[in-house]
Amino acid sequence: MNRRDALRSLASTAAALAASRTWIHVRAEQGWTPAVLTPAQDAEVVALTEAIIPATETPGAKAALVNRFVDQALAGAGAAQRDAFLQGLAWVTARCQAEFGQTFAAATPEQQVSLLTRIDDDGTIAAAEQPGADFFRTIKGMTISGYYSTEIGLRQELGDDGRMVLAQFEGCTHPEHQG
């Protein structure tokens, strides 16, 4: 499996993890330690996921503990996927060190945005940024899977009412939607 395929399959693994409901951290678990990530890598993941889904009127990825979801997904992934992810993460940190003289987590919001803008795939990724772009696509997918399968993401942010027992299914009642 090449690096790109490994990253792609990791995103699918994470999506499956979110769908299988093995994950949902709604409150801080005391004494949590990552299974895969080092504390320094974890800090980078916290900052990256929060940059992807930040706190707005509702809490963001950091408050939803999406970093733990990422760690859990990595723990369940194959070695090739895990390595590809960690290499991508190292690429981001190294790039930040080179450009800003500090890690992604320590960089200013403007610096973070400037890097992410270059590696967010809009179809015009420079060759030198391609490893970053492949990684960013993956962590973005994992952040979306992880965040929106929490109570914060699904209920607070997206407004799902969570009801699983209805006497009737009302369906669409808008006159303008009827044929």
């Binding site: 769908a19 696509r137 979306i144 899977s145 929106y148 993401g153 799902d160």
Partner: peptide, 25 residues
Amino acid sequence: ASASGAHGGSEKIPGFGATLKREIK
């Protein structure tokens, strides 16, 4: 509306940050 999270297609929405979050919603 998906009941298990954001629709899978949300990952294809370009961008990040508050703009992405707003568009997913």
